[in-house]
Design a protein around this nucleic acid. Structure first.
Lengths: 285, 285
DNA sequence: CTGAAAGCGCTTACAG
DNA sequence: CTGAAAGCGCTTACAG
């Protein structure tokens, strides 16, 4: 068994309160006694028990990062990985630890939903269900939503501006002379798809270009499906009906389209323009 | 304040012990009373306090994943990201949570090293310092080392077989007819570099090929340095002295070399063969 | 099947 | 600057 504060107290001859203070608020303890405490602690290999500290403090210095994503695993997701990385970095700088949870939420025997681990707050990423959000609110734990739909006043929600991102991409393509721009959209959550498509549609219209249903494709957002989609487009129509540009609603799709282009002996950007969304690191490769 | 087990006990008229059991060992409680407990709990929005549970149980159901890596951030590292992902998946399946720590280890006021968060065990990835390993051993917490040098009997250590991986790569290149193979090695930890280089050197020798110092390069393991390295090689020698193949000790370097090849108007594998190490997802792009 | 009681290892007013 | 004491919210033998 690891030694406790009582063992240290016994060995150095001071009270438990003094031992605690020597570790938590060293300045409250006279230097000479502090050193005796430390010496005893070292002999006993004593280290504070974080969970025992957390209870009376009513604070854990833990936050949860809860990712809801069917598409792909947390850390391999090129959109969330850099975010998670930043979260961990900043948390450590603040003395917090990060607990990774999936949204495969725990349920109590009575059916109630809850997060097993005690945390002081949470970052909820993606289409987290409302029950879980309520759970945190009931516990009076602060949360930050990431890419969620909730627009309520009393919650912090960081999200991508899907609409204007789309507008910028499509306008850029039009400015480069493209008149026939295909939309290859991943099957993301409703509000994301809606926003990005609206940007596409509106921008075409603003520029006096027709919106053609046959140029809009919804696929599973990975590069294999994107490659398949590209092949189908070429096979399904004559050359003069080929789009000249592809606006993909994420970068993995864009990678797939580019691969498709090369597979068919074409080249980017010579034969087709391809634009993605997200600014993932994938673009570098 | 969130409600406690005592609130629930008061509301439903049973003792705290019964409330506990209704949640932790439901089968020990008569169904009718169990339901009354659940009803009271629901009314009060009660949820067990995980840290209070952990204390008498002497168990947290948490494990730490501690990554020591100067090279690049945890989740963006193409080698560790998939591992971390699998760790989290499996942990959740086992009812464990994962706490992410860096090896920017915490120190107590007395200089003693320790992990602030209470965990039942840990996975230590990379060149973790020995103090931290000792810490866990003193606490009698099980640990698994990942890619560490420690070869001691009483520790589990998963590692890449650097030597035979290298042998396979280099032999493959030789089998394809290459006689001049450059080694572009990342500045990884000593034992990794040593193992991979030994595989390279030995395989050249076994095949009766000369080992040339000017064909061995040590660089920072990112694709930019790799690109630069490639350019330098070409600039520094005449065409007949070009290596025909590049064995890179990780995939990021290989990506950089490939980029370098194309920048110079050459092509892979037509003009140069390029091989990496790690089987990262990067290879797909 | 249920309850009373001791205990998990620490913290924090309150005194002195 | 130090200590005695109550408390954090739960669990678990031990009885009944």
């Amino acid at each position: 068994m690891p030694s406790t504060i009582l063992d240290v107290a016994a060995l150095c001859g001071y009270s438990r309160a003094t031992v605690t203070r020597a570790f938590s608020e060293p300045h409250l303890v006279k230097e000479s006694t502090r050193n005796k405490v430390y010496e005893a602690a070292r002999k006993l290999n004593y280290t504070p028990n974080a969970i025992a500290q957390a209870m009376p403090r009513m604070r854990t210095d833990n936050i949860a990062f809860i990712l809801y994503e069917h598409q792909s695993p947390a850390f391999l997701n090129p959109f969330y990985a850099p975010i998670l990385d930043a979260v961990v970095d900043m948390s450590h700088a603040l003395g917090l630890s990060v607990i990774i949870s999936s949204s495969a939420d725990t349920r109590l025997p009575n059916g109630e939903i809850y997060i097993k681990k005690q945390v002081d707050g949470a970052i909820l990423a993606g289409q987290i269900n409302a029950e879980l959000i309520d759970y945190f609110q009931h516990q009076h734990k602060p949360i930050v939503l990431l890419n969620n739909i909730t627009r309520s006043e009393d919650r912090i929600c960081l999200a991508i501006d899907d609409y204007s991102g789309s507008v910028q991409v499509v306008q850029h393509l039009i400015d480069r002379g493209h008149r026939r721009i295909a939309l290859i959209q991943g099957n993301f959550s409703d509000h994301v798809m809606k926003g990005r498509r609206a940007g596409y549609v509106d921008t075409l219209r603003t520029n006096g270009l027709p919106v053609k249903a046959e140029d809009i494709f919804t696929i599973q957002a990975d590069y294999e499906h994107a490659m398949g989609c590209f092949a189908e487009i070429l096979d399904g129509r004559s050359k003069e009906d080929y789009p000249t540009a592809f606006y993909c609603t994420n970068d993995e799709i864009a990678v797939g389209i580019i691969k498709g282009v090369y597979r068919r002996g074409y080249s980017v950007p010579r034969d087709f323009a391809v634009a993605g969304f997200d600014d993932s690191i994938l673009e570098d490769d």
